[in-house]
Design a protein around this nucleic acid. Structure first.
Lengths: 177, 177
DNA sequence: GAACTATTTCTGTGAATACTGAAATTACAA
DNA sequence: TTGTAATTTCAGTATTCACAGAAATAGTTC
């Protein structure tokens, strides 16, 4: 691993910062940024040198990234050390992250909402109004996740084409606002 | 503010937890949950009692929520104290949050990427491969934000209808994968 | 199976963040 | 004004989270 160029540093620092804003550990995001733009898989030691963090930190962060499914362990010929590379297809990468966040956060939230609604129906304590808000929220998640499960299968190119159609799409289909 | 029902507590706690996972302060998210399902606007003192947090904490959290644009200050007849209510339309609410996150996080990221690409074109240090990955990422954001700016204008009902069409949509338009 | 290298787990420390309670400010009423 | 209630700001404290370094484990090679 050569020394990082200013451009690489800039990207890595920003990506790390962005991570923290979305609940991703800074180092985890930085390592991801590094691997994403690296032309070749890197081993742990190279990551340590590039980012100046502890070896142990790199180890756990890599585990985390593998858990998300956007980094994978590979082997390099003639080198027994583990190397790591990031998924490179951006659309695919975000899809994987969204799937994972859905699984970890949205799905449990929808279950919670269903439970709350069921319980609210029974008890006297919970205001009718409150119950209706929970229903609204649940319905919103039902709709958006159903929608997402459609869109996620489309190739990026199809989405780009749809975008170009713009509002004409709704008019054409006769389902405009 | 009456004592919270178990259902309300469950929702508030979960929503707070969810907040932390997406980079939103726990108390901020809890207050939002409380206001969202409240049939009437609440004043700061009522929030303090319901959640058991310090008055000052409520004050700053409410400022935060107003900054996001999903809670607004209202006045109740015959009561000089400030009251607060959450936006109730869920689709609208998420749209507001997404708009705000775009402004705060996505837009700056796209600017950063443009700068990186411009600098990478000039310098010798940054690998050609790296430059291409940054271009990919930039293009991805260009596409998705263009797409989002379309979709955000559609009413939820239109999206639901589109969902129902499913993959037929792409076939109909002849832009299938 | 000993000696080495690579990797992971664990524990204590430091930094960042969230929170409280007090003080200061503002808004209003008499 | 002066007094009172409401709200915000601020400074100190607590809690949470991230991290380094050490210790333990696993994996290789001879």
């Amino acid at each position: 691993m050569n020394k990082l160029s200013p451009v690489q540093q800039k990207f890595i620092l920003h990506w790390g910062e962005m991570g923290t804003r979305w609940g991703i550990n800074r180092t985890v995001a930085q390592i991801h940024a590094l691997l994403f733009m690296s032309p070749k898989p890197l081993n742990a030691e190279e990551i340590v040198e590039a980012l100046g963090v502890a070896r142990s930190n790199v180890s756990t962060s890599l585990k985390e990234l593998q858990g998300w499914g956007i980094v994978k362990l590979v082997h390099v010929m003639g080198d027994k050390r583990d190397h790591f590379e990031s998924m490179k297809d951006v659309w695919e990468m975000f899809r994987v992250v969204l799937d994972e966040r859905k699984k970890r956060e949205i799905d449990p939230t929808m279950r919670m909402l269903s439970e709350c609604i069921a319980e609210a129906e029974k008890d006297e304590e919970t205001d009718e109004y409150t119950e209706q808000r929970l229903r609204d929220l649940n319905e919103f998640f039902e709709n958006t996740t159903a929608w997402y499960s459609q869109v996620r299968k489309w190739p990026m190119t199809a989405i780009v084409k749809l975008t170009k159609l713009g509002d004409k799409l709704l008019k054409t289909l006769g389902i405009g606002g």
